[in-house]
Design a protein around this nucleic acid. Structure first.
Lengths: 203, 203, 203, 203
DNA sequence: TATGAATGAGCGTTCATTCAT
DNA sequence: AATGAATGAACGCTCATTCAT
């Protein structure tokens, strides 16, 4: 019989996750020490370690939340059938990404997570899976586009999906690193680039 | 009057830079210790510190080399006037990026450099400048495209340049993290996406 | 008036002691954490601490059980009067020790207890008392041997008892550390060493 | 070309080993923290770790010194051919052991080393090897005794050697734990126990 | 009686950097 | 110019123990 309620446990978990996110955003993943997180959360070392067995697990949990947010944002917009025209999707997705990436949003950590994929084998797998999952959303979208004839017959929808997905890191990077791109700007730029029939109404 | 020749100093610098790159690629920027670099270079701590006053400077020098390589690759392809059609540029740029990002190429470090921009104020400025510089190449290319009429009059060439630039991090990431994209695939995907007049011959 | 029956309390005590012994044998005294014991016993921290106020007390209780087992084994064999011949005693004692020291027997902990005597003042006294008590058994045996004339008149029976006792740690150590001595071997070796009249029948 | 002389390095090593020995004797192997050793030696963490890569290696080095001292003491006394009579050997060995075990002598650590053999796999092998090596000295001695006829033909000299070796831990334990045995007492006790022909002059 | 969340000092170890030689 | 021994603060993590429930 648990000594504290599941709600209490969940609150503690959140408390730790919130503190960790704040620290990670402020100082970076590597530069944040566990002591920083203890201080930020107001909890002791032991308390934090009861909920997360290692710093890596904490990072995993935080990045999982970020990718879940990304999925939740992206999913409804690009899994609908028939698919919305590409410029519309970009115009819808970009502001959501910008929102998640502004000022302490969890997407600010994405570039650090990408870096992890290259230097930390353990966390790397996790990052790779997450990235692949989100890209699959785009590939699926491209497939639907092809099916509905918005892309010419014989189009390699996987290649198209990879290219579409590839716009997102670029936008995110310009948002969080350079800070001088707006969602509208992306929509405008992409709109000016793409073929007219991708702009056509659905169906 | 210098005690050793400039050539000797340059050789030493290279020796250190090569060792640092090897270590950074193998273990990551944060995970590489200065002692790793001493060992890899065969030099003593003092010797390395004579040439680079801190680990940060070493990272800066390495990332500067990577961005110089990127510039050197990109420059000739997109600064020419009149500008080449966009799909041709992508088809030319993608293999060069893939080459620089494969298997110990310096571009493998790019995601780690991006991450630095968000967590390390000192190195961040450097990364930001570098990134802005490369993006300016794309914005200039878009401007020239607009001038030559390949983009409709009134097109926001800055937005277009930002979107074009944004494809590169996405391609790089899929190359180094997921490892399952080819330059051809990017060219195909982008080709299927862009407007017919962007594909027209130059002039 | 007790809230739970003495039997219940005794059962709990055993449960804890059994778990502690299992842990101590598996990981060693120092390497075993209290949380290991909580897990092994299936009890909570609070429950264990209700029965044993500290890890030291748990160790004391475990080592007391081991030395009680040793006493119970040794006592009947060497306190009888008239005393049995020394080789016979060794031949009887060695297999019992080997049995208690094999594979999870409590005597496996003896060397760790000896070590404690030197590094932990609190537990040290307990170990010292225990050791002295067992040695007194041997000194008493030597005294009786002297009385019955199996040792020459004027023999320093304390010195003889100390020497006899001293064979036991050596045998135990070879059993649990090297694992390549049999009780028979000890009996053979000692038999070949001792004076003929110590081998004579009693009385 | 080394920056400091080999002599300097050896002095540092000694300084660390001496500090470690002092700490280990005072507080025990487990209870001594590396910080204790830094403080006792007057050196920084980094300095100590330059010479010994881990606490385990420090313990190995210390116990190796103790066993080397034991070998050096025992060797000349029991490897001579023809072998000295057993009581003489005991009378010669006991005071040397007592000396090494008194008051900060390295043999005080022996029981802790034995304990390690049972709880620490890494250090355990080292302890086992050491113990076997010393026991082999006794087995060799018993073999020579058998050859010279001091033991009856057909005597199992391995068993005799194991029994002889076994007296040493017992004596050591009584010396360092109980502190109430003298080398003379051991010699007396053993002398009263052994067969007359083992006391005969050599050859 | 029993729970188990919480504590926080302390652990072994690393590492960027300095400086006497 | 070059060495490499030395520094010492900081790291991620553990653990015997307590106490509100």
């Amino acid at each position: 019989m648990p000594k504290v309620s599941a709600a209490h446990r969940e609150r503690r978990r959140r408390q730790i996750l919130d503190a960790a996110l704040a620290c990670f955003l402020r100082k970076g993943l590597h530069e944040t020490s566990m002591q920083d997180i203890f201080a930020e959360s107001g909890l002791s070392a032991g308390a934090v370690y009861r909920y997360f067995p290692s710093k890596d697990e904490l990072i995993k949990a935080i990045t999982a939340e970020a990718s879940a947010a990304m999925n939740a944002t992206l999913g409804p917009l690009i899994t609908q059938d028939p698919p919305a025209p590409f410029p519309e999707v970009i115009a819808a997705v970009a502001p959501r990404i910008a929102e998640l990436a502004r000022d302490g949003g969890p997407l600010c950590l994405a570039p650090q997570a990408w870096a992890l994929a290259l230097s930390d084998p353990g966390l790397g797998d996790h990052v790779r899976e997450t990235m692949a999952m989100i890209r699959d959303l785009w590939i699926g979208y491209a497939a639907r586009l092809a099916e509905t004839g918005a892309l010419p017959p014989g189009t390699d929808h996987v290649a198209v999906g990879k290219a579409m997905f590839g716009l997102m890191p670029g936008f995110l990077l310009q948002t969080v690193v350079l800070g001088d791109i707006t969602p509208d700007e992306l929509a405008t730029g992409v709109g000016a680039l793409v073929r007219p029939d991708l702009r056509a109404a659905r169906g």
